[in-house]
Simulated assay, not measured.
Amino acid sequence: MAGEPQGDCLFCKIVQGEVPATLVRATETTLAFRDINPQAPTHVLVIPRLHYPDAASLAAAAPSVAADVLREAGEVAADEKLDGQGYRIVFNTGAGAGQTVFHAHAHVLGGRGLNWPPG
């Protein structure tokens, strides 16, 4: 059920302290931690503590928490000194878009040129 911890979800296990992660920031509603397979010099994931399968379901069910995720993404960028040079916030939704963990999360990427389109 959305909002409830899922026993098979990697990010729920990180929230519950069952799986280690390199934490960058933590709030009452969010966690931010370094991606284990970084795609840029700075690659931090910002997740809601509550389980929602993707960003759209999070925004529909808990818009204030979705706003918290975006706010924390900006704070991560500032902490990582990316705010002056530019950074990207990415939400992948669905396997076809590259989502591999089905718990809503924002990727904060920076520290190198991020021309669009990627790849």
Rank of each mutant, 00 (worst) to 15 (best):
M1D: 01
M1V: 07
M1P: 09
P5S: 01
P5D: 13
D8V: 02
D8N: 13
L10M: 03
F11N: 05
F11S: 03
C12P: 04
K13D: 09
I14T: 11
I14N: 11
Q16H: 06
Q16D: 10
G17L: 07
E18P: 00
E18H: 04
V19S: 08
V19D: 01
P20D: 13
P20Q: 02
P20F: 02
A21R: 08
L23Q: 15
V24D: 10
V24H: 13
V24C: 12
A26N: 12
T27V: 13
E28I: 05
E28W: 01
E28A: 15
L31D: 11
R34Q: 08
D35S: 08
D35M: 11
I36M: 09
N37F: 13
N37R: 13
Q39E: 12
Q39C: 09
T42F: 06
T42W: 08
H43M: 11
I47A: 08
P48Y: 05
R49W: 12
L50K: 12
Y52M: 01
P53V: 03
P53S: 02
D54R: 01
A55T: 04
A55I: 09
A56W: 05
A56E: 05
S57V: 12
A61P: 01
A61Y: 02
A61H: 06
A61F: 00
A62I: 00
A62S: 02
A62Y: 00
A66C: 02
A66I: 00
D68Y: 06
D68V: 04
D68K: 02
V69S: 06
V69N: 03
R71T: 10
R71N: 11
R71S: 09
R71F: 08
E72T: 13
A73R: 06
A73F: 05
G74L: 02
G74D: 10
E75T: 10
V76M: 08
V76P: 06
A77N: 13
A77H: 10
A77Q: 07
A78W: 03
A78N: 11
A78T: 12
D79A: 14
K81E: 14
K81L: 00
L82C: 04
D83H: 07
G84R: 11
Q85R: 13
Q85Y: 01
G86M: 08
G86Y: 14
Y87E: 04
Y87W: 15
R88F: 09
R88V: 00
I89M: 08
V90F: 02
V90W: 01
F91P: 15
T93Y: 07
A95G: 08
A95Q: 11
G96N: 07
A97M: 05
Q99C: 09
T100E: 13
H103E: 05
A104F: 00
H105Y: 12
H105W: 07
A106D: 14
A106K: 10
A106S: 10
H107E: 12
H107L: 09
V108H: 08
G110L: 04
G111M: 12
G111H: 13
G111A: 05
G113V: 08
L114F: 12
N115T: 12
N115I: 10
W116C: 07
W116H: 03
P117W: 05
G119M: 07
